[in-house]
Simulated scan of single mutants.
Amino acid sequence: MTVYCWVKMFWSDEKLRWNSSDYGGLTRLYLADHEIWQPDIVLYNSASGTEVDHYGNTHSIVHEDGTVLWVPPSLFRVFCDLNLRRWPYDEQTCLLRLGSWTYDGDQVDLQLDDNEAEFDLMVQNTQWEILGLARKRNVAFYSCCSEPYIDVTFALTLKRRSPTYNALVLTPIVAIVALTLLTFLLPPNATEKVLLGGCTALIVCLFLLFFSQMLPAMANHTPLIVTFYSCTLMMVTVSLVLSVLVLNISRTLHLMNVPWQLKSLLIGRFGICIGLGNYIRLANAEQHGMIGGNLGEEMREHPLDDQHGEEHHMIPMERQAHEPSGTSRTRTMFYDWILVAAAVDRLALLLYCLLFIVLAAAYI
């Protein structure tokens, strides 16, 4: 943290006292910094290495009673122990520890005045907002010496301004969650499911790369928003696996029926509750021969109706011999497996909605 400020220091110098009546009513002097003694107050926790000259070369005001006022413009650079866990809504506290470099507490006794820090002339920072400034006087004793060593600590509490980060980081979360959930709302046999999931995974990877470039590597405090994106990437990857599974179920020619226990569960109240009403009607209509060839072609996307086609020849010869309506049964089985694939999508949709709510409550 870099702080530009004015430091107001008072001290009393007995060698600079005089009677104003002896000097024509002169009550104050303006003296350069090299003309009088000044306390060597330095920043103990400076991040500038060996540089200890924090103050500008401004004049001091000396009063006739020996009181000296020095208000130099100052530049302080310190290291802050950042906790970015709540980034970009984080609050940070940085410490400025000032004390004499060569004098102990018996020679230079640092005190804090009763006035609070003045922010009237402060230039607003575009990224940080100052919430408060706490001051504390510390007296330390060391094993080497009997005299006290005094320093003053200023604790500056900052809050990050977040409107820009809302647009850059938080708003895309809504789009990523929506794209992930839309994957499960596409028809079970739509190949666009894999394309949509792959694009979503690419977007999440780009954001994680953006975070790696923007945020410092923190050993103890991983930002919650980064954890959210990492978990989202894993969930998107799992959704791609589920999409491939659903496509395999819905587009493969199955030679065995859906187990009756499973089908009865899906065509019952449970299936209606999870939004399978349309697929249940299609399966029932196909079972009763109420679906025309054109609609069947649109749902299957491969020529199951063609009795001389490739899929027809995939039916065992024994079944074709003993079951003249084998193709009709294949159509019925196809719609039953479409129903199973749609059920997998709907259950995954409900599960992902729950997981995203939990992640949002925990990490945002």
Score class of each variant (00 low, 15 high):
F76I: 01
D40I: 09
I41L: 14
T58Q: 10
D33C: 10
P39W: 01
V42H: 03
L43P: 03
V78W: 03
W37R: 09
V71Q: 07
S48M: 08
C80H: 02
D65R: 04
D40E: 13
L26D: 12
T58N: 08
T67N: 11
G56P: 09
H34Y: 15
S74T: 00
G25L: 10
L75W: 01
V78D: 00
L43G: 02
D90G: 13
T67S: 14
V62I: 12
N83L: 13
E64R: 08
V68C: 02
W87M: 03
Y55M: 12
G49L: 04
Q38R: 13
Q92D: 04
T67Y: 07
Y44R: 00
L43M: 06
G66P: 03
V68F: 03
G66W: 04
R86M: 10
G56V: 08
L69Y: 13
D40F: 04
T27M: 06
I36S: 04
L69S: 14
W87T: 00
H54V: 06
N45T: 05
E51N: 14
L69F: 12
R28E: 15
R28S: 15
Y55G: 07
E51H: 11
P39Y: 02
V78P: 01
W70N: 00
V52N: 15
L82W: 02
N57F: 15
